[in-house]
Nucleic acid binder design. Structure first.
Lengths: 348, 348
DNA sequence: TTTAGCACTCTTCCTGCCCAAGTGCTATCT
DNA sequence: AGATAGCACTTGGGCAGGAAGAGTGCTAAA
């Protein structure tokens, strides 16, 4: 080596060969095996030298003396950087994905199918999350009296997402009160961001508190009941393909913790939102997930924001073992992210 | 033995002791161990004789000569029959359950929390399913134009369940057409069972086809778009606690298949509906689930219908290993089934 | 700079062996 | 006659030891 830590073309070739071999076999890879399977006839000894350098630079690890080498997180990161960009999606995946997602009309349905199809094409868990987000503009609301003191609120947003919420109120309002209130909100706030509606409404109610306005009292009641509350976040989180993880070689206890974590969908949502944001252009690969979630040691996240135009409407990702087919998964995630924009734009 | 297959008090006592020991240890139980742990000082030899009889009658099995005995499905069934009725719920479970379920206002929320709490109190998977069922009466519908050709249909039922559905229509209808159509349906069909609304509406449309009625044309369009279609069944199926199964001693492949099956929620729904029906009074314990679902060998279903009055609104169940705390789980399921009636009746 | 050879280190797998636990059968005790 | 004790037999688990396979580092040669 001319420079410790330097990666020349030979080192790169050997490193990617090691990573790929390890991904497909799961066994620590040794110099002899590598020299056999690689066409360019480098002898085991040469490879050993390179391997020693790569170990020094932190790309490889040995489980114990005299076992093969195993790629470190650093190696995976390097590998992913190498292959990114040169990927094109396989026709099989492409048709599977477009067939599944074709004909979806709203965001929720798209996300649900996305999580499903991602779990199919990858060897990991497919995750898709809808973003309530700040850009959630009101289309209209609708209140319906159900029984004494119980009212159903239906909130429709510009994005075509429907939130329905059953509320229990302090006082009983009859349907005509409810209609008046709904009309008031629809006429005054159409196109507003929902959280702003909430605060502005609160302000107006406070302001006019003195005048015993019937409308304002209704609004007060409804707002207190949570008519415009942010909907339960769990509703737009789709996680599928947990079964894919069960076949792996990890120990029982960690697997159980992992499945438990994935069942708590909010935690998955937090994870995605921690690593994905609007500014990023394409697919992001996060290696070393155990920093955020200990039970996800040896797992990676391959995700992308789901955008319509400039607006981030959600996130989609695959969570899978470090030993996964990166090329395959990255192209799939990227392809779906593009489809998202295309399909939902043409429907608007 | 005076009669092959006869179970006297001694046999019963030994059989339940075997079942309970096996449930708690998971090891085949032998005569010596049993005689030590049981207070009544029967010698191992005596127990062996009884065990031999029980094996002949099909209650016990040996993995191999000279291992202990393992209970068969028949033994579990007998055991469950023995303990049923004499069960009372533990105070800890009771408070946990009522605290979790208190304050739910609609069926969906109740079911979701139920699946969660069942997965907590049992060592299995908690399942809760809402029944669209034949008694699903229409409260009202509401249509909202979203974009060209796209219409949102909101269907509210008497049970307080909301179905919203985004449709794409052949022709474009404007909002006033939609309002007229909604009014027509609400005035004519309030209180009808939804599927009947669908067929009756179809009939009327056919009948008046000749007269070029604007209203009828709108209705035709909406009905074709699936405005009153039965909502996707997956929406009311809640499955939680899959992580509970991962700690078990089964082999990897079967565990993976099992998790996969549980992810296909429709299959879980089919399973419940196959074993639970309205007529049955209380909790039902199904042992030998592998007959319906092969990958569920060594699993049992403990379920009950969720009723409000006489009407079956859903099903709730625990799916767990044969080696589970039956008493505990049975009482929990039973308690929740009762709560369901109580809580949802008082809200109506 | 690459390759060949060599001594050394680990892990894995197989083998043989013993031991604990359990069984069935028969003879004996109350 | 039912319960118990004794005995020969079976079987899986655990442990020691040895051979095999794969891999490594280092040195010397092409």
């Amino acid at each position: 080596m001319q420079n410790p830590g330097h990666i020349g073309p030979r080192e790169r070739e050997i490193l990617t060969a090691i990573v790929e071999t390890y991904i497909s076999t799961g066994e620590p890879v040794g110099s002899r095996t590598l020299s056999r399977h690689n066409k360019d006839g480098l002898s085991p000894a040469t490879i050993r030298n390179v391997m020693a350098d790569l170990s020094d630079s932190g790309f490889l690890e040995q489980p114990h003396t005299s076992a093969g080498r195993v790629p470190t997180s650093q190696a995976y990161r390097y590998y992913v950087d190498q292959i990114s960009g040169q990927a094109t999606i396989s026709p099989a995946d492409q048709t599977l994905i477009s067939d599944t997602l074709q004909g979806t009309v709203d965001v929720q349905e798209f996300l649900e199918r996305t999580s499903h199809v991602l779990s199919l094409v990858s060897s990991g868990v497919g995750v898709a999350i809808g973003n309530a987000g700040p850009k959630n503009a009101l289309e209209h609301v609708y209140f319906s009296r159900q029984a004494n003191n119980r009212v159903l609120a239906v909130v429709v947003t510009k994005a075509g997402v429907v939130h329905d919420r059953m509320m229990r109120l302090e006082r009983d309002l009859d349907q005509s009160d409810l209609n008046t209130a709904a009309n008031y909100i629809n006429e005054n706030f159409r196109g507003w961001i929902i959280s702003s509606v909430k605060t502005e409404l609160r302000r107006r109610i406070e302001q006019e508190r003195s005048e015993y306005d019937r409308l304002m009292k209704s609004l007060d009641e409804l707002e207190k009941g949570g008519a415009l509350a942010a909907e339960e976040p769990a509703k737009n989180i789709f996680v599928e393909g947990v079964a894919n993880l069960v076949g792996n070689d990890q120990d029982r206890a960690r697997l159980r913790d992992l499945v438990k974590t994935l069942e708590e969908k909010e935690r998955v949502a937090d994870l995605l939102s921690a690593y994905l944001d609007t500014r990023q252009e394409a697919v992001r690969v996060v290696i070393g997930l155990e920093e955020a979630v200990p039970e996800m040691r040896n797992f990676v996240l391959i995700g992308a924001p789901a955008r319509v135009g400039e607006e981030m409407r959600g996130s989609l990702a695959v969570i899978g073992p470090t030993r996964m087919d990166y090329q395959h998964t990255i192209t799939a995630v990227s392809y779906i992210a593009q489809l998202f924009d295309k399909l939902l734009n043409e429907n608007t």
